[in-house]
């Protein structure tokens, strides 16, 4: 206590000065509108920079939660988006469930390989979450693959970086169909086959999913045409394409379920028999 008093006595002039300065600042603020405005500006500057600093720290600690929230939102938006892509196929409206059979579920990719010619992905949801065989897996800007095997909590996915995979694609705003096949080296470089050379395609055309398979709905954007060669001998185009997103760098994905899958499949079985 004595020490505190000593400090007060020692610095009494500075303390008095600061006290009176504070008082005169209040006096200044009360008396002059101009100064009031200016002082409020200064205090706003200080408080806002302080708050933005603490806010940035707080935000950092909330990132994980925020991320989860955004992913949930994405899940909803994604399903709306793929619904809207197929509006013209199901003209009755996108809210009607029977007209649009696709459903979206969010998953994390826990293992992703791209070195081999036949790549597989493991995702962290399985039969317990309703994942079944032959469901499509898509990402924010493209497709990832097809569910191949399912355990209770995990599922393996055939990546599109697999030379056995052929994906039915269509050129945006055109009627031409083709098959997307991985070339086997660069994870973004694909080629498109089975496109008849009579169809009109340009370099830079956007490729979307075709909607012919029951795995993926129509209209998920995949990539662009980078190179185009007309092969006169066999009557097919030789097309190089590049994906929007590198499938080897993903760690979040969406599994889409076609609830009419069985129905469509049984029809196919009938045809084969």
């Amino acid at each position: 206590m004595q020490r505190i008093l000593n400090v007060f006595v020692k610095y009494r002039n500075s303390i008095l000065y600061l006290f009176l300065l504070g008082f005169s600042l209040i006096f200044l603020k009360a008396n002059s509108n101009f100064h009031q405005l200016k002082l409020e500006k200064i205090s706003l500057f200080f408080s806002s920079s302080l708050y933005s600093f603490s806010n940035s720290i707080n935000r950092y600690f909330r990132l994980e939660k925020e991320n989860q929230r955004l992913l949930k939102e994405n899940e909803v938006l994604k399903s709306i988006q793929i619904r809207s892509n197929t509006l013209f196929l199901y003209t009755e409206g996108c809210n009607n469930k029977t007209n649009f059979p696709f459903d979206v579920q969010r998953v994390n990719i826990i293992k992703n390989s791209f070195q081999s010619q036949y790549n597989y992905i493991i995702i962290d949801k399985g039969a317990a979450s309703g994942i079944k065989r032959e469901m499509g897996v898509i990402s924010a800007k493209g497709i990832i693959g097809l569910v191949q095997a399912v355990t209770d909590n995990y599922a393996s996915v055939i990546s599109i970086l697999n030379q056995d995979m052929k994906i039915n694609v269509r050129f945006k705003n055109r009627t031409t169909f083709g098959s997307l096949i991985w070339k086997g080296k660069n994870p973004k470089k694909f080629s498109i086959e089975d496109v008849v050379s009579t169809s009109s395609i340009k370099k830079g055309d956007t490729i979307v999913t075709g909607g012919m398979s029951s795995y993926f709905p129509y209209g998920i954007p995949l990539g662009v045409v980078t190179n185009l060669e007309n092969n006169i001998q066999n009557g097919y185009y030789k097309i190089d394409a590049e994906l929007f997103e590198n499938p080897a760098e993903l760690y979040k994905a969406y599994v889409i379920e076609n609830s009419d899958f069985k129905e469509i499949n049984s029809l196919m079985q009938n045809i084969k028999q």
């Binding site: 008095l16 000065y17 009176l20 300065l21 005169s24 006096f27 200044l28 008396n31 100064h35």
Partner: peptide, 28 residues
């Protein structure tokens, strides 16, 4: 003395209806 400096500026501000510039300057 500091207190007197404050009072001096304060009275001048007070009487001449200016903001508080005299007070702060003479106090400082």
């Amino acid at each position: 003395y500091i207190f007197i400096g404050f009072l001096l500026g304060f009275f001048i501000d007070f009487i001449s209806q200016t903001g508080g510039a005299h007070t702060i300057a003479s106090l400082s």
